[in-house]
């Protein structure tokens, strides 16, 4: 099977202890409606376990959502772990309650894009389709 025919695979997860998942569940539903294969990890995951699952499941995208303020530390660890496992080609996306001034810091860690609360589901779907397409072509 050629990679072009492969459905886009996404792991959506909540790292750390934050329990708010209204936003991430909406994204999970929208990505599924768009025909992607989505694994939702549920809450209370360590960055280590998310990266492990992302590699095991051979996903194109790892999307995380954090609303309790721990996004900088958690995303830095996630990006570092992906690099250590030589899996930096998995596109790391972050969403949640993230102040705009933190976005450049997250991108410097290796987060490809940040979708704050209020981001449109359609925009998230389109972005993932685009980066997954680039990844398949590479």
């Amino acid at each position: 099977m050629s990679t072009a025919q492969r459905r886009i695979r996404v792991l959506m997860g909540k790292p750390g202890l934050c329990g708010h998942d209204r936003g991430i569940v909406l994204v999970v539903m929208a990505l599924r409606d768009a025909g992607m294969e989505v694994i939702y990890s549920g809450r209370h995951n360590s960055p280590e376990s998310l990266v492990e699952v992302a590699i095991q499941e051979d996903v194109d995208v790892l999307g995380v959502s954090i609303l309790a303020g721990g996004h900088l530390g958690l995303c830095e660890r996630l990006a570092k772990l992906l690099r250590e496992r030589n899996a930096q080609d998995i596109v790391l996306l972050a969403g949640g309650f993230i102040p705009p001034e933190d976005i450049p810091k997250l991108k410097a860690f290796g987060v490809r894009e940040v979708f704050r609360d209020g981001a449109k589901l359609e925009d998230i779907v389109q972005f993932i389709e685009q980066v997954a397409g680039e990844r398949a072509a590479a």
């Binding site: 750390g16 202890l17 360590s46 309790a68 303020g69 958690l74």
Partner: peptide
């Protein structure tokens, strides 16, 4: 804070970065 609400002591690995936050 979240570690307390989840029954984790401040020095638990999962508590890192969340002690005294919420």
């Amino acid at each position: 804070d979240l570690p307390t609400q989840l029954g984790l002591d401040p020095d638990h690995p999962m508590a890192r970065g969340e002690v005294g936050m919420a």
